[in-house]
């Protein structure tokens, strides 16, 4: 599994007064099993980028390759691609429509042409994965809480057995526990099912905590792409495009500026805490 974008441009409303170039000359390769975070200012093209990955929007220019095959070729099956690259929209709970939770989750796999047995099996499995208990499967999805709805919607995509999961702000509006649950689930899917995960987030902390690779977008372009520790070193550049580094990185940086011996690659809470403890212990040892 790999996704490659080559010189991709995307223009909304081409030929009208409100023409906006949402993506400019995007070159990008996503490899199997990566956990990629995408950050960027509002309107920088993150959602548009995700929608290109499963062929929902067609690039105005350039090509998208899935496993080396051009997805715009005539004989390429878009339907299969939609199943392989599961796209979870922002506020996916707004798409629920069936009478019961289980029926809603079965919608995707049934559309993919799976047998009723597979459909049911995968739906149950997906619901279990996202932590929806058996007592809820025959309930109307409209009676669930916001967080539960979100998980059901996520299960609806997981049940299609995708190889790639692309999520647009998956934890927006969730409480801290709900957020951690979702990310824990995504990490588990990446490890146990070999899924490739991409997620858009406005939280630098979430990116630092969970992503193995971070893509920074600005006005339709990819400006930084790499391992979070490396990317978050560009505090000034990130600030210029309306972004920031995680709070813990800021704390570590200002401690270092004040002359404390803290290493320069602390971006998560744990890393910063460890560095401070290490510094404290070193000092104590030195003092003794």
């Amino acid at each position: 599994m790999s996704i490659r974008l080559e010189n991709v441009f995307y223009i909304y409303g081409k030929g009208t007064k409100e023409e906006t170039c949402a993506l400019k000359k995007i070159n990008l390769t996503i490899e199997k099993n990566e956990f990629v975070g995408i950050i960027g200012h509002t309107g920088s093209g993150k959602s548009t980028l995700l929608r290109l990955l499963n062929g929902l929007e067609r690039a105005t220019e350039g090509s998208v390759y899935y496993n080396g095959k051009n997805i715009y070729d005539k004989d390429f099956s878009m339907k299969t691609l939609r199943g392989k690259v599961g796209l979870v929209f922002q506020y996916p709970e707004h798409q629920l429509f069936e009478e019961t939770v289980i029926k809603d989750v079965q919608f995707g796999p049934a559309n993919m042409g799976m047998t009723p047995l597979e459909t049911e099996l995968f739906a149950f499995q997906a619901l279990k994965d996202v932590g929806i208990g058996e007592e809820l499967i025959d309930v109307s999805p409209f009676l669930l809480s916001g967080g539960q709805k979100r998980r059901v919607a996520l299960a609806g995509v997981l049940a299609m057995k995708p190889e790639v999961l692309a999520l647009d702000e998956p934890v927006a509006g969730l409480d801290p526990e709900g957020k951690e649950n979702i990310f824990a689930l995504l990490k588990r899917l990446q490890k146990e099912r070999d899924l490739t995960i991409l997620f858009v987030s406005h939280s630098m902390e979430d990116i630092a905590e969970y992503a193995d690779r971070v893509i920074v977008m600005n006005q339709g372009e990819i400006v930084l792409d790499g391992e979070p520790h490396k990317v978050f070193r560009y505090q000034k550049e990130l600030g210029q495009i309306g972004l920031d580094v995680p709070v813990s990185a800021k704390i570590a940086n200002s401690l270092r500026e004040k002359g404390f011996a803290i290493p320069g690659d602390c971006i998560t809470v744990d890393e910063t805490a460890d560095a401070v403890i290490r510094w404290y212990q070193d000092r104590k040892r030195g003092a003794v």
């Binding site: 929902l56 339907k79 939609r82 798409q95």
Partner: peptide
């Protein structure tokens, strides 16, 4: 919503008039 359902494999274009009407339900 149409895009979101299309991402789950919904098909709004093919089929006869009745099937297409039904496909608008989601």
């Amino acid at each position: 919503i149409m895009k979101a359902q299309a991402a789950r494999g919904a098909d709004f274009e093919s089929g006869n008039a009745f099937q297409r009407m039904k496909s608008m339900l989601p």
